[in-house]
């Protein structure tokens, strides 16, 4: 048995204007989970401690919270992996959400973004008109099983630095779930779904891999890239900055072997988008004043033909 001291964020939106912290000591075996420690604290010390939980085995996704500042499932985190020498473990509500009471947060923005996706199968015909079962080959199903493991715990959403400054971004889980239907051969709304997720700022993903800490190994970061590839393959909303950026980077790498910064900026913003270019101009001028502007043209690397052979062999759309 270990004496675990839970350092708990306490807040009740109905009565408190500011949060405070309580330290609650419990005796539990140190191999028990943080959720076990919280349940013991609630049962034996203070019945008012509030947190979400249900399955206790990383299937329901309810108990995501910050444990020593790291977002994850309390039911999947043994105390002895996080407690310090004094047995202290800090628990806080997930970031990127409004706290409601103690470790419980308002999940609405997360669910709103999820329901916008119409997260259900939309086949081309009605089930009653469909004479046979809707078959999916093992290869096609293989693409979907990892994403289907998502338990919607919102760990990725809480970790996302883009959500933290701009809540209009769909967030990793919603994009991963969009992928689940975009790549489902039984679904008939691929185009609408791609357009929808593009409108919800698919391309605002910052490539930071914070969501690679998914407790269910869904790897939303990789699924986001898959949805971007599908967007370009199907040529959806190609005039937006995201696809334009991806294509101009490919183009300059194919032409010169290098990522040509100046051309990429012009190509992404739009060579004739004067308002857009004006917005990047102040930084450009500040850089020019310091002699730091990237060169207007980049000299191709030696043997750049080899790079072009690679692109041509893999049939990358460069336009």
């Amino acid at each position: 048995m270990a004496n675990i001291k839970l350092d708990i964020f306490r807040f009740d939106e109905a009565v408190d204007s500011v949060p405070h912290r309580d330290i609650v000591a419990v005796d539990v075996p140190e191999t028990m989970t943080v959720l076990d420690a919280l349940e013991t604290a609630k049962a034996e010390v203070d019945g008012s401690i509030s947190f979400r939980r249900s399955c206790r085995s990383a299937i329901c996704g309810s108990c995501s919270m910050n444990i020593n500042g790291v977002t994850g499932l309390a039911c999947k985190t043994p105390c002895n992996t996080v407690m310090d020498e004094q047995g202290v473990i800090q628990v806080d509500p997930m970031p990127n959400f409004q706290p409601m009471r103690d470790l419980v947060v308002h999940m609405d923005p997360f669910w709103d973004k999820y329901t916008r996706l119409k997260p259900y199968l939309q086949p081309a015909d009605k089930d009653e008109d469909h004479q046979t079962e809707r078959r999916v080959s093992p290869e096609d199903m293989k693409k979907l099983v990892d994403v289907a493991n998502c338990v919607m715990c919102a760990t990725c959403y809480a970790l996302c630095p883009v959500v933290s400054v701009d809540p209009s971004f769909a967030g990793p889980a919603a994009i991963a779930y969009a992928y689940r239907f975009i790549e489902d051969v039984r679904d008939s709304k691929r185009e609408e779904r791609l357009a929808q997720i593009n409108e919800d700022y698919l391309w605002l993903c910052a490539h930071c891999y914070a969501c690679s800490y998914c407790p269910k190994h869904v790897d939303p970061n990789d699924r986001i890239v898959d949805v971007k590839r599908a967007t370009i393959k199907d040529r959806v909303m190609m005039n937006e900055r995201g696809p334009r950026h991806a294509l101009i980077v490919n183009k300059t790498v194919k032409q010169t072997g290098m990522l040509a910064e100046t051309e990429v900026i012009q190509g992404t913003v739009g060579r004739f988008n004067f308002r857009g270019l004006l917005k990047v101009a102040p930084l450009g001028l500040r850089m020019a004043a310091k002699g730091k502007l990237p060169p207007p043209f980049v000299k191709p690397i030696p043997k750049v033909d080899e790079v072009r052979t690679i692109f041509d062999s893999l049939e990358v759309p460069v336009s």
Binding site: R229, L259, L314
Partner: peptide, 24 residues
Amino acid sequence: AASCCGASVVNDTNRDIARVLNAR
């Protein structure tokens, strides 16, 4: 004579291209 690594953006169009550029 090395090329760009792909910079996480070349990946967005095709899963193979950045890998082969780096293999080169």
